[in-house]
Design a protein around this nucleic acid. Structure first.
Lengths: 225, 225
DNA sequence: TAGATTGTTAATCGATTAACAATC
DNA sequence: TAGATTGTTAATCGATTAACAATC
């Protein structure tokens, strides 16, 4: 019987793998910037990042990159595969909702385009902020949201609004047709099936730090070995 | 022979467990705010968060909380245990380095004190920013860093500076005696052994979103089932 | 008591690592 | 060729889940 065609790198990658791929990507980017060699071995990547070399090869195999035995991996090929996998070559339009300090900081970040994201508008409900300019974007009234989302085919909304407003605005952007939300309000928002949401709880990072600070203290208090 | 004393909750918790504990904590906080009952079963926590109830009991056992068979867990006891485990009851002094939009947004966030963090100063190298006020903090010259760190026993530095400055400032704060760094510059910084560092790469969240946006597109293109 | 829920041991699952043949 | 590195199968490890006795 005919064997099913082997689609390499087509299965869903789990988030942990995605994070590692980003680390590989940044490492290779650094090398490229510093005119490093265009060949790298899995062992070199692994050593730099404190991983096992087999794991690196597995990850790269999962996104369809083949190395050359006795040689290694071609860094441009690896970077291209990561970009393709992640979708950095596709451009998605995004809007930022909330033009406070955080929204402004995010609007000012110039790095989004490298990852395929284009910020097309900045919204606020606060009349006093409407018409001001942040990093080249006029702050618009939230009333224009639906129209602009439809016109530009906006796929992603970045929420940088107060906690109280986060859920209702999330509902509104979903209603407007947006299918991905990047939530920076310190609350978890609920969305219907099929909508991607990423909650950037600042408390998660904080918790990890507080826990480790506490452990540092305990270790210092413990009798010296 | 005497059995060794069982120290519950004294072993190191892995980051995944810490994140789950924060979810439990926020869930219980919501209940408390809404005058919910003071007893909760592991099954109720698990169902709300989409987890297995055994996992919840294991996590709580790991931080030394005991439930009552046939009844459940007392929410105040659980919250206290999480707070104790995380170190939210200990207060650590922190400084923010970089008074741009992001530094300002973080300085303005009022939620840190709930987690035991107290921002005692905001620094900048840019002369034009020194002397301005952000959320009650004078922006000070970075020249004052060492003195202030020593005087206030500062444990944590939040880095909200440009990529180019991040590593050298990290070195400087470590030299000044700080043992934890929360880095918001989009680069990984290296620190000596014993120093806690948490890199908040915006690209990690972005990558996850970009990947999922791409998959949404692929699924829509796929033949309907 | 009966029965709901915990606490804990055993089983499962998935991810990581080890071993090693294939390869250029 | 010899040998370095990949690709892949098998083993290990750790985390999660299932099963169930203990408990109030």
């Amino acid at each position: 019987m005919a064997r099913p065609p082997k689609k390499e790198g087509k299965n869903v990658l789990n988030p942990v793998v995605l994070v590692r791929l980003m680390h590989y990507y940044h490492l290779l980017q650094d090398r490229a910037v510093n005119d490093g060699p265009e060949i790298i071995s899995s062992a070199e990547i692994a050593d730099t990042l404190g991983l096992d070399d087999t794991l690196v090869r597995k990850d790269l195999a999962a996104i369809g990159v083949r190395g050359r035995p006795r040689v290694g991996f071609e860094t441009p090929a690896v970077m291209t595969a990561i970009r393709d996998t992640m979708g950095f070559n596709d451009t998605y339009n995004a809007v930022i909702i909330g033009s406070g300090r955080l929204g402004g900081a995010i609007a000012a970040y110039g790095g989004f385009s490298k990852y395929g994201l284009r910020v097309v508008a900045l919204f606020d409900a606060e009349t006093s902020r409407i018409g001001t300019i942040h990093s080249g974007h006029f702050v618009q009234s939230i009333d224009n949201l639906e129209q602009l989302v439809a016109r530009h085919g906006v796929r992603l909304a970045v929420l940088t609004v107060p906690v109280e407003a986060a859920q209702s605005l999330a509902d509104r952007v979903v209603q407007a047709g947006i299918r991905a939300i990047w939530n920076f309000a310190p609350t978890s928002i609920n969305v219907p099936e099929g909508v991607v949401v990423r909650n950037e709880h600042i408390s998660v990072g904080l918790a990890a730090l507080a826990y480790n600070l506490k452990r540092q203290t305990i270790e210092n208090d413990a009798p010296a070995e």
